[in-house]
C-alpha cells in the first residue's frame, strides 16, 4: 500500500482491507509507537469536523508525527479565491501525506491527481469516507471475531447515508445478509440493491423495527436528518419511528452489537448506552487504531 492514495473504499481489495485491520489490531495492542518521527502530515479540513479530525490527530500524535493544516478554510488562501489544485500542490511541498475533508464531491480524487504526496480522503461531501468504513469493518471484526456470514441491519437514512453505502460495498466481500430498515422516503437506492443482486447477496427491506432484530449480529444505526425532508410534517412523522430503545434489545443475540458513525441525535435512546451491546463509543476509539494503520501503511512504515 506504500504511496497509495485512499480515496474510495472500492480502491482497495478484500486482502487490503484485512491487512489494514491486522495492522490496526497491532496498534490497539501498542498504540504509542514513535514511527512517524520526522514526518509531517498535513490535515486540511475545508469544512468542520469533530470526530474524524480529532481521531486523525490523535493517531498521528500517538505515532510521534507532526501535524500542519487548518480546521476550517475561513482563515486560508481559499478565501482569497485560491483553487483547490494550487492549495494541494503547495501543501504537498510541505508534507509527506495529506489528509483532507472537503464539501465538494470528487475533490479528493482530483487532489490525488495533482498531488505529489498521497492523499487520504476524510470525507468529500456526500460521496466517500473510506476511513470511516474501515473503522466500521474493524469494529465488526473485533466484536464478532470474523467478517464472514454476518447478518447486518442498517437503520435510518439509507438513501443519503454515505457510511451505509460504503459499508455495503465493503461487506459484500464477506457473504453477509442485509436487513434494511428505513422510512420509505429514505430507502436504499436502486443502484446499491442492483449491486447486491449482481453479487448474489440477500437483502430484506422493512419500514419499521420488527421482531427479526433478534437475528441481527450487527445493528448499524444512522441519523435521519431533518434537512432530507422537503415536508417538515413528514419528518415529524418518521423521526420517532426509528428510535432504538433498550427495551427492544431483550431478545437479541448475545453477540449482537449496535454501531453508529456518530453524531447521534435521538435515534438511539440514551438508555441503550449502558447496555453491553452498545458499541458506538468504542467504535469511535477504533477509528484511532484504524487511522494509525492506514497512515503507517501508506508511508511504508508497516507492511
Amino acid at each position: 500500500m506504500k504511496n497509495r492514495n485512499l480515496i474510495s473504499i472500492s480502491d482497495y481489495t478484500k486482502d487490503e482491507y484485512l491487512k489494514i485491520l491486522e495492522i490496526a489490531e497491532e496498534f490497539e495492542k501498542k498504540p504509542v509507537q514513535n514511527i512517524l518521527e520526522g514526518k509531517v502530515i498535513a490535515s486540511l479540513f475545508f469544512e468542520p469536523s469533530t470526530r474524524t479530525r480529532l481521531s486523525f490527530e490523535s493517531a498521528i500524535n500517538k505515532l510521534g508525527g507532526k501535524i500542519i493544516g487548518f480546521t476550517d478554510s475561513g482563515s486560508t488562501s481559499v478565501q482569497k479565491g485560491e483553487s483547490l489544485k494550487d492549495t494541494i500542490k503547495t501543501v504537498a511541498q510541505y508534507s509527506d501525506l495529506i489528509i483532507m475533508r472537503h464539501p465538494i464531491e470528487g475533490s479528493a480524487r482530483y487532489a490525488s491527481e495533482v498531488s505529489e504526496v498521497p492523499i487520504v480522503n476524510a470525507g468529500d461531501g456526500a460521496n466517500q469516507h473510506p476511513t470511516q468504513c474501515l473503522l466500521d469493518l474493524y469494529s465488526i471484526k473485533k466484536t464478532q471475531g470474523t467478517l464472514e456470514n454476518l447478518n447486518v441491519f442498517l437503520v435510518g437514512d439509507l438513501k443519503y447515508g454515505r457510511t451505509v453505502h460504503s459499508l455495503i460495498q465493503a461487506m459484500s466481500n464477506f457473504n453477509p445478509i442485509f436487513n434494511f430498515i428505513s422510512p420509505k422516503q429514505l430507502k436504499m437506492p436502486n443502484e446499491y440493491k442492483m449491486f447486491l443482486e449482481e453479487k448474489g447477496i440477500k437483502y430484506f427491506e422493512h419500514e419499521e423495527f420488527t421482531d427479526i432484530i433478534s437475528e441481527a449480529d450487527i445493528v448499524y444505526v444512522t441519523r435521519v436528518q431533518r434537512e432530507r425532508f422537503s415536508d417538515p410534517i413528514e419528518y415529524e412523522k418518521v423521526k420517532n419511528a426509528y428510535v432504538l430503545k433498550n427495551s427492544m434489545l431483550e431478545n437479541t443475540k448475545p453477540n449482537m452489537k449496535i454501531l453508529h458513525p456518530l453524531p447521534r441525535v435521538n435515534e438511539i435512546s440514551e438508555d441503550v448506552d449502558d447496555n453491553k451491546k452498545a458499541y458506538y463509543f468504542i467504535q469511535a476509539l477504533n477509528g484511532v487504531y484504524t487511522r494509525q494503520a492506514i497512515i503507517s501503511l501508506i508511508l511504508g512504515l508497516k507492511n
Binding site: S83, L84, K85, P103, I104, E105, G106, S107, R109, Y110, G125, A126
Partner: peptide
C-alpha cells in the same frame, strides 16, 4: 449532472 461535483465547481 451533479452540481456538487468538483468538475462543476473548479476548473477540472
Amino acid at each position: 449532472f451533479n452540481p456538487k461535483c468538483i468538475t462543476n465547481n473548479e476548473n477540472v
